[in-house]
C-alpha cells in the first residue's frame, strides 16, 4: 500500500481521537436527518429556446424544458443526439448561441457552487489521496465533512490510498463523494456509470438514488441505458436530432424493482420509439 501524505494521517488520527468527531461520525441517522432538513433545496431549471451548433452541425434546436426543484430527470437518446451537449449547457461549462438557461428564475451563465458535475471518467487528481480529492476546494476545517461524504459512499476505510489503486466503480464513488461534499442543489451526471461493469452499475444506481433521496438536490442524468433511466428517474426525456421527441413521467413507487412489469413496459416503449426513428445524419 502506498504511503499517503503524512499530514493527512496526522490530521486524521487527531480527528479520530477527538470525541467531537467520533460522535459526528457515529450516528449516521442524525446526519441523514440533518441533510433532509434542507431537502427543499433543489434548483428549478428553465431552458428557453436553446440552440447550439458546432460548425455547420446543429446539435440542439430551439429547445424548451422546465425542471421542477428536487426532480430526478433522465435524458436518453442515440449517440450524438445532443444529450451531453444539453447537460453541459445547463451546467454552464459551455455556452449556447441562442436561448437562455435560468436557475430558480435567475439567468445562469457559468458554473458555480450550486451545481456539481459528474463526468464519465472520475477525474480524480492522481497525486492526491482519496480524502484529499474529496476535500478539493474545501476549507481546511471542513475535514470531517469530507470524511462524512466518503462514509456515505462507503469508502471511508480507503481515505488514505492513492486513486490509482481503486477500481473504476470505487473511483466513481469517490467522485460522487467529492460532488456531494459541497451540498450542491443541482447534480449533473454525464453517463457516470457508462464505463462500469453491470454489477457495479446496479450498486452505483442504488447509491445515487439513495443519496438523491437523502439530500433532495435536483438531479439530471444523461445515459444511453434506457432501463437505468426508467429505474432511477421521475421523468425521462428522449432527445432525437436536437429536439425533445418524448417526455414521460415515471410514477412508480421507490425503491423500484428491476423486474417490475410497468417499469419494463415503459423502458420497452422508449426503446421502440428510438429504434423507429431514423439515425441522424
Amino acid at each position: 500500500m502506498p504511503i499517503p501524505n503524512i499530514n493527512i494521517l496526522r490530521e486524521r488520527s487527531a480527528y479520530f481521537n477527538s470525541d467531537a468527531v467520533s460522535n459526528y461520525l457515529k450516528p449516521k441517522m442524525k446526519v441523514v436527518e440533518k441533510v433532509k432538513s434542507n431537502s427543499a433545496s433543489g434548483i428549478a431549471i428553465q431552458v428557453q429556446n436553446l440552440s447550439k451548433s458546432f460548425g455547420d452541425i446543429k446539435v440542439l434546436e430551439n429547445l424548451n424544458l422546465d425542471i421542477k426543484p428536487g426532480a430526478f430527470v433522465a435524458i436518453v437518446g442515440r449517440s450524438g443526439c445532443g444529450k451531453s451537449t444539453l447537460l453541459r449547457l445547463i451546467s454552464g461549462l459551455d455556452q449556447a448561441e441562442v436561448g437562455s438557461i435560468s436557475y430558480d428564475g435567475n439567468p445562469h451563465s457559468s458554473i458555480n457552487g450550486d451545481a456539481r458535475f459528474m463526468f464519465q471518467e472520475a477525474r480524480l487528481l492522481p497525486w492526491q489521496s482519496v480524502i484529499n480529492n474529496v476535500r478539493l476546494g474545501l476549507k481546511k476545517t471542513d475535514f470531517p465533512k469530507a470524511l462524512n461524504a466518503l462514509q456515505q459512499v462507503g469508502l471511508d476505510a480507503r481515505a488514505d490510498v492513492w486513486p490509482s489503486v481503486l477500481s473504476g466503480g470505487q473511483r466513481q464513488r469517490v467522485a460522487l463523494a467529492r460532488s456531494l461534499v459541497h451540498e450542491p442543489r443541482l447534480l449533473l451526471l454525464d453517463e457516470p456509470l457508462g464505463a462500469l461493469d453491470a454489477l457495479t452499475r446496479i450498486e452505483m444506481q442504488g447509491l445515487i438514488e439513495k443519496l438523491w433521496r437523502e439530500h433532495g438536490f435536483t438531479a439530471i442524468l444523461v445515459t444511453h441505458d434506457i432501463f437505468e433511466a426508467v429505474s432511477l428517474a421521475d421523468r425521462v426525456i428522449l432527445l432525437n436530432d436536437g429536439k425533445i421527441d418524448l417526455d414521460i413521467n415515471i410514477d412508480l413507487p421507490r425503491p423500484r424493482q428491476r423486474s417490475d412489469v410497468e417499469l419494463n413496459r415503459l423502458g420497452e416503449e422508449i426503446l421502440q420509439r428510438i429504434l423507429t426513428r431514423p439515425v441522424a445524419s
Binding site: 458554473i111 456539481r116 463526468f119 477525474r123 487528481l125 478539493l136 476546494g137 459541497h182
Partner: peptide
C-alpha cells in the same frame, strides 16, 4: 479533463496551478 474538473470545483488560478 482535470483542468475542466478544476473549473467545476471553483478553483482559483493559484489553486489550479498548485493542485
Amino acid at each position: 479533463q482535470l483542468l475542466e474538473m478544476g473549473r467545476v470545483y471553483d478553483l482559483n488560478h493559484w489553486q489550479l496551478f498548485t493542485q
